[in-house]
């Protein structure tokens, strides 16, 4: 069976400011990014949905030793979306000199970053970013 949304659809959605995912007809829960089935119950009775892109930071770090191709420092966070799922992304538009736990439970809204094709990237990648509300 084919994906309703694969990663390329997800990337195109991000570029248009849309957070695309699934909602399950069996359990009613959301899956984002999309999978081949519901992330909660495994059902394939799923339909496409656009999520709000709003959530709260649950945890974060400032990366100071970066992989090849990335320039530190930058903020990496895990965000709980209004609809339930979590996403990892960079927090943009704020400095990296933060007091301890400063960003915990802060409200954020979805953004994105475009990475041109590079070695070991299998083409253009659009990554998830967040801005403080």
């Amino acid at each position: 069976m084919a994906y309703l949304f694969n990663h390329r659809h997800f990337y195109e959605g991000l570029k248009e400011g849309k957070l695309l995912g699934l909602v399950c007809k069996s359990c009613g829960k959301y899956t984002v990014p999309a999978k081949i089935c519901c992330a909660e119950c495994g059902s394939t009775e799923i339909e496409a949905v656009q999520l709000s892109g709003k959530g709260k930071i649950k945890t974060y770090t400032v990366i100071r030793v970066a992989p090849e191709g990335f320039t530190p420092p930058y903020i990496l966070a895990m965000v709980e979306l209004e609809e339930g799922p979590w996403l990892m992304g960079n927090v943009e538009g704020c400095g990296t000199e933060l007091s301890d736990a400063e960003l915990i439970e802060k409200n954020v809204i979805l953004g994105h970053k475009v990475h041109p094709p590079a070695v070991y990237s299998a083409g253009e990648v659009v990554s998830i970013a967040f801005f403080l509300e």
Partner: peptide, 9 residues
């Protein structure tokens, strides 16, 4: 697809 390109380590 969704995490490495945030510069996750």
């Amino acid at each position: 697809r969704y995490e490495s390109f945030c510069g996750a380590t």
